[in-house]
């Protein structure tokens, strides 16, 4: 009997110290850049499998007017202090021009009036923040596909980069400027729009006036606000810190379907 008690005691002690060790080790490994780098490798698998199982044209769920959130929670920049943006805002975006350049046959500079005259789409969709909450809003905007066709993408164009008017983080090298990028599958998806209306009203500043991207099958941080310029590129490694977006440069996934 005392033999078993001893063994139990020993087991308990061993268990407790193993637990403590595991917790300590966990913490050390949890922060270790090599370990994080290793587990981040699953990102490529996750992206490819999503591309495989999600039909390229499959639509995001659309909701009814009754589902619309009473307040569409703004996140990230809600009132950019950038001088250029403030100047546009003061003039009611009268001089604003959406620039479309990079690997295009016909670079464009479109006024808001011209953007609103483009083929448009209205959709009531759910916005999913990476933090976990969701909001439902009604968006109206210019479909990105026809807009890109108007500019004529060159053969080697693979991604569309969205350069934004807001600085989300003050940095010395300018890498705090918000930007995003999507591939041509998402750019030509029927629900991908540059929205100028939210819930039947002109897009408010907090939600990204004058134009914000809606790429409905991805998380909130892909929905670039204050879009100033679209750049068609072959790859985005030369832009900012090279990962294709503000949050991507800070460790988040480039393909944000989950």
């Amino acid at each position: 009997m005392s033999d078993t008690t001893n063994r139990r005691g020993w087991l308990k002690a061993a268990g407790a110290s193993l637990g403590a060790l595991a917790l300590g080790a966990c913490d050390k490994i949890g922060m270790d850049p090599k370990a994080v780098g290793f587990v981040s490798k699953a990102e490529g698998l996750t992206r490819r499998v999503q591309r495989l199982v999600i039909d390229r044209k499959a639509l995001a769920r659309e909701f009814t007017p009754a589902d619309i959130s009473p307040v569409f929670k703004p996140n990230g920049s809600i009132s950019p202090s950038d001088a250029d943006y403030r100047a546009h805002l003061l003039k009611g975006f009268a001089d604003y021009r959406l620039v479309v350049d990079g690997l295009v046959e016909r670079p464009l500079a479109l006024s808001l009036e011209e953007v609103s005259a483009l083929p448009s789409r209205t959709q009531i969709t759910r916005h999913d923040c990476v933090e976990g909450w969701s909001a439902i809003g009604k968006w109206t905007g210019a479909r990105l596909g026809p807009l890109l066709d108007k500019a004529g993408l060159k053969k080697n164009a693979r991604y569309i980069v969205f350069h934004c008017g807001d600085t989300l983080e003050e940095t010395l090298d300018g890498s705090g400027q918000y930007y995003e990028s999507i591939d041509l599958i998402d750019a030509y998806h029927p629900q991908t729009i540059l929205a100028y209306q939210l819930n039947d009203k002109t897009l408010p500043v907090a939600n990204g006036a004058p134009l914000r991207l809606r790429v409905e099958r991805q998380l909130g941080y892909k929905q670039a606000k204050y879009v100033m310029r679209l750049e068609a590129v072959e790859d985005f490694s030369h832009i900012s810190r090279g990962n294709g977006g503000f949050w991507e440069d800070r460790g988040y996934e480039w393909y944000a379907g989950i």
Binding site: Q50, V53, I54, D55, A58, L59, A60, R61, R126, D128, E216, R217, Q218, L219, G257, I258
Partner: peptide, 12 residues
């Protein structure tokens, strides 16, 4: 998977 906006399009 139901929390994935991408997978929602595949399996609403």
């Amino acid at each position: 998977l139901t929390m994935s906006p991408g997978f929602n399009a595949a399996a609403p």
